[in-house]
């Protein structure tokens, strides 16, 4: 994929990104684990025991895939948006821009860093969930590929947010007002079978709904949607967002004057 010097540059960006989020693990790795554990305890154990079954599974088992996916989405996104914006803010992004690093290597490095954090937190949350539910894997291939594609999509999304951000408010607006509602309405806690027909159609416009349900299919073997269609959507998102990121870097939006 990369020639020698580009591979070294790519490795350098990835190592720097991983070093960053592990150095500040109290801000990056611990909080999502605590938050998701609370979801397990409150929604899974306390409330879930009164709900009974959903989609043919115990409520705790039903929500575990969604909660893992929530951790992956939030952390992939926030790693790239906060890291790239903070480099813009400190102007240290100039170190990269003056060096002979092609745009696709810059993008790949940040995306790999975001995916690394998303997958790292996702793995920790998965291990934690084993204390609360008996998890099996229905399809390992689908489970792994949907996690990778989802973390890739949200890392790309975080990159676009960082490119346009001018201050720290700008990097929290999208996660707070767009991402969180989409995650909560994306079928993490319920099956869309429970919704009236109109809201069922509206839910299908939410991309996170496809990711959560495909991941749930990979683990439980049950889903509200067609898995092949979900993968097609995910691949389309990757292509469009990747193209958008490269176009923005080429134009120098947010980084060159």
């Amino acid at each position: 994929m990369f020639s020698d010097h580009r591979l070294v540059a790519f490795e350098t960006i990835v190592i720097k990104e991983v070093r960053r989020f592990t150095r500040i693990w109290l801000q990056t790795l611990l909080p999502p684990v605590i938050t998701i554990s609370l979801y397990f305890v409150i929604f899974g154990n306390l409330v879930g025991s009164r709900i009974g079954e959903m989609g043919g599974y115990r409520y705790m088992e039903f929500i575990v895939p969604g909660l893992i996916m929530m951790a992956v989405i939030q952390n992939s996104y926030s790693n790239v948006v906060s890291s790239f914006f903070s480099q813009k803010f400190q102007r240290s992004v100039e170190e990269l821009l003056v060096a002979p690093v092609p745009n696709y290597v810059i993008l790949s490095g940040y995306i790999a860093g975001g995916m690394a954090r998303g997958l790292c937190v996702g793995l920790i949350v998965t291990l934690m969930s084993l204390f609360f539910a008996d998890l099996g894997i229905h399809s390992l291939l689908i489970t792994i590929s949907v996690v990778l594609l989802t973390s890739l999509v949200f890392s790309l999304g975080g990159f676009i947010n960082a490119v346009f951000a001018n201050n720290f408010d700008d990097i929290s607006i999208i996660p707070t007002f767009v991402l969180t509602p989409l995650i909560y309405l994306g079928g993490v806690f319920y099956s869309i079978e429970l919704l009236p027909p109109f809201w069922r159609v509206v839910s299908q416009l939410n991309p996170i709904f496809y990711m959560v349900n495909t991941f749930r299919y990979g683990i439980l073997g049950t889903s509200d949607i067609d898995v092949a269609w979900a993968f097609t959507m995910l691949c389309l998102f990757v292509i469009v967002l990747y193209g958008g990121c490269i176009w923005l870097l080429r134009r120098g939006t947010g980084v060159r004057s």
Partner: peptide
């Protein structure tokens, strides 16, 4: 450059080595 433009949170050695990596130095 005229303005300080490195990551204030990185170690001095890391800043210089990272820059070398951007230029493809093993």
């Amino acid at each position: 450059p005229q303005e300080i433009n490195f990551s204030q949170f990185e170690k001095v050695g890391d800043v210089v080595r990272t820059q070398a990596g951007y230029y493809g130095l093993p």
